[in-house]
C-alpha cells in the first residue's frame, strides 16, 4: 500500500481536543481592562455582594470575542464551585422569558446578544425585572451587545439607562497582526503547530474576521488529522 492510500484510509476520530472558551485562549490585545475586570468579577463570586457599579456591559462588533469572554467567565465561576447562568438572547426562539424568572439566587448571570431583544417589550421588561432583583440580591450581571446601551434600540428607557449605569466597555477588534497571534495561540492550544508563514498565508487568502478564521482552524485541524499531515503551505494548497 503506498503512502497516499494509507493517508486516505485514516479517518479522524470524533474525539478531538476541544478548546472550550477560557481566559487563557483569548488574545487580550487592546482589551486588557475589560477582560481583567471580568476575570476579577468571575473570581470574586460568593465573596462580597456585587453592586451595579461593578456590573459589566461589553460591546463591540462581531468577532471581538464577546461570547468567548462570557463563556470563559462562566467557566471560571463554575471551576470555583459556583453556579453561573449564561443566556444567549440571539437564540430567543428556543427559550421564553420564564428562563429569566427566579434566577436572582444565581450569583453570576451573563446575558449575551442583548440587542436581539431590543424593541420586544416583554423581554425588555423581563430583563428589567432581572436587573432589579439581581441588584437586591447582590449578584453579578454581565451583558454583551453589538453596540453601546443607548444605541441598541431598547424601548424601555428604564432598562437602557440602567445598563449604562455600570461599567461600559467597548471591545476593540484585533488588528491583522493580533489575529495572526490569536490564530497561532488557538492552534497551539489544540496541539496544532502553525508556523508564521502558514498563518500569513491564511490571513492573505481567506476572510479575515475572527469567526471565519477560527472556523477555518477547526476545519484544518480535522483535515490535518485525517490526512496525518502537518499544517504546511503545500498541504493547504492541496486542499484548495
Amino acid at each position: 500500500m503506498n503512502r497516499e492510500s494509507t493517508r486516505r484510509a485514516q479517518l479522524p476520530l470524533n474525539l478531538r481536543l476541544r478548546d472550550a472558551s477560557s481566559f487563557e485562549n483569548y488574545l487580550v490585545a487592546r482589551n486588557r481592562e475589560p477582560v481583567e475586570r471580568l476575570r476579577q468579577a468571575a473570581h470574586s463570586v460568593g465573596q462580597a455582594p456585587h453592586s451595579p457599579a461593578s456590573w459589566l456591559y461589553l460591546w463591540g462588533e462581531p468577532g471581538t470575542g464577546k461570547t468567548h469572554l462570557l463563556e470563559a467567565a462562566c467557566r471560571a465561576v463554575q471551576e470555583q464551585g459556583n453556579a453561573p447562568l449564561y443566556v444567549a438572547l440571539a437564540e430567543k426562539a428556543d427559550i421564553t422569558i420564564a428562563l429569566l424568572e427566579d434566577i436572582e439566587q444565581v450569583p453570576f448571570v451573563c446575558i449575551d446578544d442583548v440587542d436581539a431583544i431590543a424593541g420586544d417589550r416583554a423581554w425588555e421588561a423581563a430583563l428589567f425585572a432581572l436587573y432589579e432583583r439581581l441588584r437586591a440580591q447582590g449578584g453579578m450581571l454581565v451583558v454583551a451587545a453589538r453596540n453601546s446601551p443607548s444605541a441598541i434600540g431598547l424601548t424601555l428607557a428604564d432598562l437602557a439607562t440602567r445598563l449604562a449605569a455600570g461599567l461600559v466597555y467597548q471591545l476593540q477588534p484585533l488588528t491583522d497582526d493580533e489575529k495572526l497571534a490569536a490564530l497561532r495561540l488557538r492552534a497551539q492550544r489544540r496541539g496544532l503547530e502553525m508556523t508564521q508563514e502558514v498563518a500569513n498565508y491564511l490571513l492573505t487568502r481567506f476572510p479575515r474576521d475572527t469567526h471565519s478564521l477560527f472556523a477555518l482552524l477547526d476545519r484544518l485541524d480535522t483535515a490535518t488529522l485525517a490526512a496525518q499531515r502537518r499544517l504546511t503551505i503545500p498541504f493547504l494548497r492541496s486542499l484548495e
Binding site: R18, A20, L70, E71, L85, L99
Partner: peptide, 18 residues
C-alpha cells in the same frame, strides 16, 4: 458533558445547576 455539548448548552442549562 463539556466534551459532548456546545458551550452554550453547557452554560445555559448545566452550569447553573447546583
Amino acid at each position: 458533558l463539556e466534551e459532548e455539548l456546545s458551550s452554550q448548552q453547557l452554560n445555559t442549562w448545566l452550569r447553573p445547576l447546583r
